Computed example of a mutant assay.
Amino acid sequence: MRRVEELAGWVGDGGVVALSGAGLSTESGIPDYRGPSGLARRATPMTFQTFTGDPAARRRYWARSHLGLRTISEARPNAGHGAVARLQELCRLDGIVTQNVDGLHQAAGAHGVVELHGNLAGIVCLDCGEHSGRAALTERLDAANPGFSAAVSAVNPDGDVEIDESGLADFTVVDCTVCGGMLKPDVVFFGETVPPERVSRAFALVAGARTLLVLGSSLTVMSGRRFVLRAAKDGIRVAIVNQGVTRGEPYADLVVDGALGQVLPEIVRRVEGVTVQ
């Protein structure tokens, strides 16, 4: 509790920027990539190169993602998301940068979220650049694949699922309604680069922060860890709340190992000045 109390003091000072990862959404039923041990739960997810270069792999991805979206779309913000939104409302949180693609920060009431890796709710055409919503694509895929179903054995944080793939050869992929081009979820796949403007916005938030608060990220990939490295280099306090190991600990001034759905609401209560029995 001493570390939680210290962190509450830092957050109470204001000037906090949050960097969230998949661990924040696990209590909403969306598993993270690595878990507390730091070991990957699955092989590398779909890469951009495979998606664009292999029609069979692309068909497999869309079939699995089509089923997986049901789980992602049914997920609701948990107490951790609610606490982050409340800290923003209390003017202690100046910005939110997330590696997640589930939109749960916004669903909890947060605003101005920098979504580094995009959002599964959007679709982009790789040929003409047309953006559209996932709901419309879901209707089109349903119409093109009547009766398609498969038993889901595992759900992944990128909206993909593990299923019996024996019937996937008959799954029909639909194309862009504007140009007939290749459609892709408007998220950053492995092998893609995060759009520079998002990175710049995130770095600008970190540069103006008093504290960088990492929430539920193992910081294994450079996409998120670079902000911790920059904060440490610039003398900005780094605090991490996560279950299990992270690669950011050597650069952190404070680490709290605990469930975010418990720790973050406790931080809010302390910031609001409520006495906890």
Rank of each mutant, 00 (worst) to 15 (best):
L7R: 00
H111I: 09
V221A: 13
T246V: 02
C176L: 05
V206F: 00
S28A: 11
L213F: 14
K184D: 05
A151L: 15
P55D: 01
D170Q: 14
D13Y: 01
E27V: 08
K184S: 02
R237I: 04
Y251G: 00
G21H: 00
E89K: 12
A110E: 11
F171S: 14
V245I: 13
R269G: 04
G68N: 06
G112N: 03
P36W: 02
G118K: 06
E272T: 13
T211E: 03
R70G: 12
L264Q: 07
P146Y: 12
A79V: 08
L260G: 11
V271I: 14
G159D: 09
R64V: 03
V256G: 09
I236N: 06
A136D: 15
I240W: 10
F203D: 07
G258Y: 04
G38W: 10
Y251T: 11
G109V: 11
G122Y: 03
L264N: 08
K233G: 08
L104W: 07
A107H: 01
L39A: 15
A169Y: 06
E27N: 02
C125W: 07
A169Q: 09
R210T: 13
N78I: 03
V113R: 05
A8E: 01
A239R: 03
L141W: 13
A151G: 11
T138V: 13
D13C: 08
G261W: 10
F51D: 09
A108S: 12
P157S: 07
S166Q: 07
L212S: 07
R201Q: 14
V101L: 05
D234A: 15
G224H: 04
Y251H: 11
R210G: 13
G191S: 12
G118A: 12
C179D: 14
C125M: 01
T211D: 02
T26R: 02
R76Q: 15
E27P: 12
G23R: 05
R2D: 13
T275A: 15
Q243C: 05
